[in-house]
Amino acid sequence: VTLFVASYDYEARTEDDLSFHKGEKFQILNSSEGDWWEARSLTTGETGYIPSNYVAPV
Rank of each mutant, 00 (worst) to 15 (best):
S52W: 09
Q27H: 11
K25V: 15
H21M: 12
K25G: 05
P57K: 08
S19Q: 04
T43K: 11
Y49G: 03
D17V: 15
G23M: 03
S19T: 09
E46S: 09
L29W: 06
E11Y: 10
L18K: 01
S41K: 12
A12R: 08
P57A: 09
L18A: 01
S31L: 10
Y10N: 02
G45K: 05
I50W: 01
V55S: 03
D35C: 13
D9M: 05
L29T: 06
E46H: 11
D9W: 05
T47F: 07
T47P: 01
I28T: 01
T14R: 15
R13I: 11
R40G: 00
V5D: 01
V58N: 06
N53K: 13
V58T: 07
S19E: 03
P51T: 01
Y49S: 06
A56L: 13
Q27I: 15
V1W: 13
Y54V: 05
Y8D: 09
E24V: 04
W37C: 04
A12F: 02
E11H: 10
R13W: 07
E46V: 09
V58P: 05
H21W: 08
W36Y: 11
A56W: 10
W36V: 07
S31H: 10
G48P: 00
N53D: 09
K22L: 06
Q27D: 06
K25D: 01
E46T: 07
E38M: 15
E15R: 11
T44C: 03
L42C: 14
D17R: 15
E24M: 06
A56Y: 14
Y54E: 02
E15K: 13
F20E: 00
T14E: 08
L3I: 15
A6I: 03
H21K: 15
S31E: 08
D16A: 14
F26M: 05
L42A: 05
A39D: 01
Y49E: 02
S31N: 12
D35K: 09
D35S: 09
T47C: 10
F26E: 00
V55A: 05
S52V: 08
E24F: 04
R13T: 13
P57F: 07
S41G: 02
E24Q: 06
V5T: 07
V5Q: 09
S32T: 12
T2E: 11
Y8M: 13
I50K: 00
K22M: 08
E38A: 08
D17F: 15
N53W: 15
S52N: 06
A56F: 13
G48S: 02
S52G: 07
E24S: 04
S32P: 10
W37L: 07
A12L: 01
I28D: 00
F20R: 00
V58Y: 12
E15D: 12
Y49N: 08
G34N: 11
Y54T: 05
S41Q: 05
P51S: 05
A6K: 00
Q27C: 13
I28M: 04
V1K: 11
L42T: 06
T14A: 11
W36A: 05
E33C: 15
T43I: 08
P57S: 08
V5K: 05
F20H: 00
D16N: 15
I50A: 01
D17A: 15
Y8K: 11
Y8F: 12
E33K: 14
Y8S: 09
D9Q: 05
G45P: 00
L3C: 12
L29K: 05
A12S: 10
A6T: 03
H21C: 14
P51V: 02
N30P: 04
W36Q: 06
S41T: 03
E46W: 08
T43D: 10
Y10W: 09
S31D: 13
Y49V: 07
S7F: 14
K22I: 09
S7A: 13
L3H: 09
S31I: 11
E38T: 11
F26R: 00
L18V: 05
Y10K: 01
E15Y: 10
R13F: 08
L29N: 04
T44G: 03
G48M: 03
V1P: 11
S41C: 06
D9Y: 05
W36M: 12
Y8P: 00
G34R: 12
S52I: 07
D17N: 11
K22D: 02
S31F: 15
A6Y: 03
A39V: 13
T2Q: 12
Y54C: 12
G34A: 14
S19I: 01
H21E: 08
S7M: 15
R13E: 10
R40Y: 10
P57R: 07
E24D: 14
N30V: 07
R13Y: 07
T44W: 03
Y10R: 04
A12Q: 06
Y10L: 02
T2M: 13
L42H: 04
I50Q: 00
T14I: 06
Y10T: 00
K25T: 12
L18G: 01
V5C: 08
A39I: 04
Y54H: 08
Q27M: 13
G23A: 03
L18I: 10
D16Y: 15
F4D: 00
D9H: 06
H21G: 07
P51Q: 05
E24C: 06
F20Y: 02
Y10Q: 00
A39W: 02
I50F: 01
K22A: 11
D9L: 03
F20I: 06
Y54D: 02
P51I: 04
E24H: 07
A12D: 01
G45L: 06
F26P: 00
G45R: 04
P51E: 02
G23I: 01
R13K: 12
S41M: 05
V5P: 00
E38P: 05
E46I: 10
W37S: 01
N53L: 09
A6E: 01
F4Y: 15
K22W: 05
S7N: 14
E46N: 11
Q27V: 15
D9G: 06
E33Q: 14
V58F: 12
A6N: 00
E33M: 14
F26W: 02
L18S: 00
S52R: 12
F26L: 08
F4H: 05
T43V: 09
W37E: 02
E11T: 13
V5L: 06
E11W: 09
A56H: 14
I50G: 01
F4S: 02
N53P: 06
S19V: 02
V58H: 08
T2D: 10
T47I: 14
E11F: 10
L3D: 05
